[in-house]
Design a protein around this nucleic acid. Structure first.
Lengths: 357, 357
DNA sequence: CTGTTAGCGCGTTCAC
DNA sequence: GTGAACGCGCTAACAG
């Protein structure tokens, strides 16, 4: 096992000397530029291997002296999580500046395919790379493919368009997130009661509040959640999902009705935002902490409800991690560096009252 | 709200010109070096503010042209988690090299204060910065203070020595980790049964397996765990902790005895490594998945036991995050940059079968 | 195909 | 207290 990491400070000059070529030739080989004979290239490669040379990023960065324009396309109209994403981008200003990257946040109606596609079509020429909160829709897929075709680096953020040609997706596996929520609900409710005849008694009803049936991430979460409940907790009865468009007021009304219609309600899972409306409806009915709630994303509202026990757990993704990953990936894509997959994996977090950050 | 980030590429030259001083003077002010009159400094500061200047990291890095030697002191003798830490350090080799940092991994007996203190005393002169897995012991505290006194940057890794003068701790809040484990156990076991007289029935016994009573991180986890159980799940009976020194074989024997002694055992919490021994003892007794297990850290063994249901959940810290944080923090400390606290916070992760990375 | 050379933006001697 | 000038390691334009 080698416990010495990076011993001798090597330079391209050392490599060139060792290979018996000029600086420029060594540089061409290192960066895979054309105009070098096969055997010269081989000599250089050997020298690189033998000496264990790696270019000094800072020097390359400086010499390249080229600047980049990134666009980040986010849904307009302040959902808390997206505001956090935007804030984190601003917080990374120094990181971007240190790499000569100008970032523009473009707000648009991400939920309307035509609007989003139109916005995307305005990007080429003005930007070198784009991160976007995607909609999984044929028109958007085509728009993304056009950008890639035009030579831009494209990554999807938070919500993916898997069949497009985007180079990377920065976000969580939403099926896994839904499954995680399902396991939390199933386990927190405890094992089923066994009736007199030795039969499993029904464990009560589980309500599902979702933003919209047509958003891919919400649909995936619902799918994962349903999978786990059906497989592992068949005694729980899933109510048909209700759609509140991530709006607290709508969610409040939906939960009021749910409480009226389903006296056997034991848990609620919210696949999206607007959890605060659920908390309000439960509080009104005097059922806060009596009905198990699991939701998504850490916001001031969900934090409060976690602390007061209204919500038992949150399944979350870290907007800070996502923004930093997006920045690294786009930078790597435009500068032609490799991306370290392991480092860019975005985790599905479970947050209880006790491990709140 | 400003959606434009980093518009004009500014240089120190621009600032100097705007302030009506030379490059060198502007540089002195920016880097807080002496030899500049108060009013000249003010002019420069104003120009910096007005133009919104930030030095280009790459150029600074290059010009500084100084290299660093970091030591990372880890426990020798392959505990899986520490091997992961070491592997992640090697995986960061390029990052270190790009910053002219030579890293040496020093293996020693971290659990013996004298050995560790002796090892630490060998470091000054040979290294600019140290990260160490600390022992919270007076002799180690003194050794750390000596290093800091001697001008080295020192951070503790995974296990802290809070009362020493180390500049930073890279690791999780172990009390929070223990509390999280406690909440998982309490909730997963379900609410207490209510007896005929309306009284809460005892919920069974909870076993606690720990590495050693004298390791601070284990002790803190036990403390947090006990806190939550006592406060929120008083119907559960905590058995006295048993010490297996993180060794699977010892843990196996301890759990065998625990099973024999406590027929009412319903859950086991392992504060440290060697969880595989617990799984073995349960499997022998045909009790795997019947007794709830919660442990720490994701390793091939714990991953397997999570998948097969022997363990219900793991509380974990990400060695990759920790190594990267350690690298950033030490680099910031030696180069005198600020550290972004929010980014360096290491999260207490909850891992279920469904959100395994 | 290959080599020479002038910067990239900042730190750091030196003079003044 | 201040400024001029060189160099960090690499890239890119140009010359051969």
């Amino acid at each position: 096992m080698n416990n010495q990491i990076n011993d001798a400070p090597l330079t391209l000059r050392d490599v060139a000397a060792a290979a018996g070529v000029s600086l420029a030739t060594a540089d061409r080989v290192i960066n895979g530029r054309p105009g070098v004979s096969a055997k010269t290239a081989l000599k250089v490669h050997e020298a690189v291997q033998r000496l264990g040379f790696r270019p000094l990023a800072a020097a390359a960065e400086l010499a390249r002296s080229r600047s980049w324009r990134f666009a980040v396309v986010l849904p307009g109209g302040g959902n808390r999580f997206m505001l956090d994403i935007a804030d984190n981008i601003r917080a990374q200003a120094d990181w971007f500046r240190a790499r000569r990257i100008a970032v523009e946040i473009v707000e648009t109606d991400v939920f309307d395919a035509d609007t989003l596609a139109a916005e995307l079509s305005m990007l080429p020429g003005r930007f070198d790379a784009v991160a976007l909160v995607a909609l999984d829709h044929p028109r958007i897929r085509a728009a993304i493919d056009d950008l890639v075709e035009g030579g831009m680096a494209v990554v999807t953020l938070v919500s993916d368009a898997p069949s497009s040609r985007r180079q990377h997706y920065v976000g969580i596996d939403n099926i896994a997130a839904g499954r995680t929520a399902g396991s939390l609900v199933g386990r927190f409710l405890g094992p089923p009661r066994i009736g007199e005849a030795g039969k499993v008694e029904p464990g009560g009803a589980v309500g599902i509040v979702t933003g919209s049936g047509s958003l891919r991430d919400h649909a995936e979460r619902r799918f994962g959640f349903g999978q786990v409940l059906a497989e592992e907790y068949p005694h729980l009865i899933r109510l048909p999902p209700v759609e509140g468009r991530d709006d607290p007021d709508r969610n409040r009304d939906l939960v009021r009705r749910m409480l009226a219609d389903s006296p056997d309600l034991v848990a609620i899972y919210n696949t999206g935002e607007g959890s605060v409306g659920i908390g309000e409806a439960l509080a009104e009915a005097g059922l806060a902490r009596k009905i198990l709630c699991v939701g998504h994303e850490l916001t001031p509202a969900t934090r409060r409800m976690l602390l007061d026990g209204t919500f038992a757990a949150l399944v979350a993704q870290d907007p800070g991690h996502e923004v930093r990953s997006m920045a690294r990936v786009l930078h790597a894509l435009v500068t032609g560096q490799e991306i370290v997959a392991a480092q860019e994996h975005i985790r599905v977090q479970v947050i209880l009252r006790d491990n709140l950050p």
